[in-house]
Nucleic acid binder design. Sequence first.
DNA 1: GTAATATTTAGATAAATTCCTAAATATCTA
DNA 2: TAGATATTTAGGAATTTATCTAAATATTAC
Lengths: 85, 85
Amino acid sequence: MSMNYAFKALSDPTRRKILDLLREKDMTAGEIADHFQMTKPSISHHLSLLKQAQMVYDERKGQNIYYSLNTTVFQDLLKWFIQFH
Amino acid sequence: MSMNYAFKALSDPTRRKILDLLREKDMTAGEIADHFQMTKPSISHHLSLLKQAQMVYDERKGQNIYYSLNTTVFQDLLKWFIQFH
DNA sequence: GTAATATTTAGATAAATTCCTAAATATCTA
DNA sequence: TAGATATTTAGGAATTTATCTAAATATTAC
């Protein structure tokens, strides 16, 4: 059940900030990392958890890997929250 | 910032199930615990994290402590998710 | 006030998470 | 093919989390 991974992914503020960044525009792993005071391997790990949660897509373009939002899981989450309204 | 606690609270499936239970009706700590194969102290701990996240209210009535949903944080969360829509 | 019931608090342990450095992989360019 | 750049993978240390048992607190009923 993918919502489980999504909720886990969302529990970390760094990952939520990554999602916020991707809301503005698609970015390479390096560009994303530039927004944090954290090593690239650490950011890479966060990206892999977001990918596991199916909250982002990754696509290689030459040397770079571009990350973008995958909004399908967000819709499921939105439905979950609306129940509590 | 209370959203941080809320996201942390939501990362655990037991806590999400507690919230689901409280969606149906208010319940005592004991009634909630009866829905899980877990000791009462463990459930009590989960309840305290939900309270810290301001996602539930607690109110003592005699020997029992009744838990109920506090939906104000849910509205903030909903707003957060709508941004990704 | 003592016993019974409901719940929480304290303290401990095992597992999961976050972050780091070093090494590996993939791609591009000369 | 060798070197440079972008990114991930591997392995490990420190912290946090989830859970348990035992003890403490609060309330009720006799």
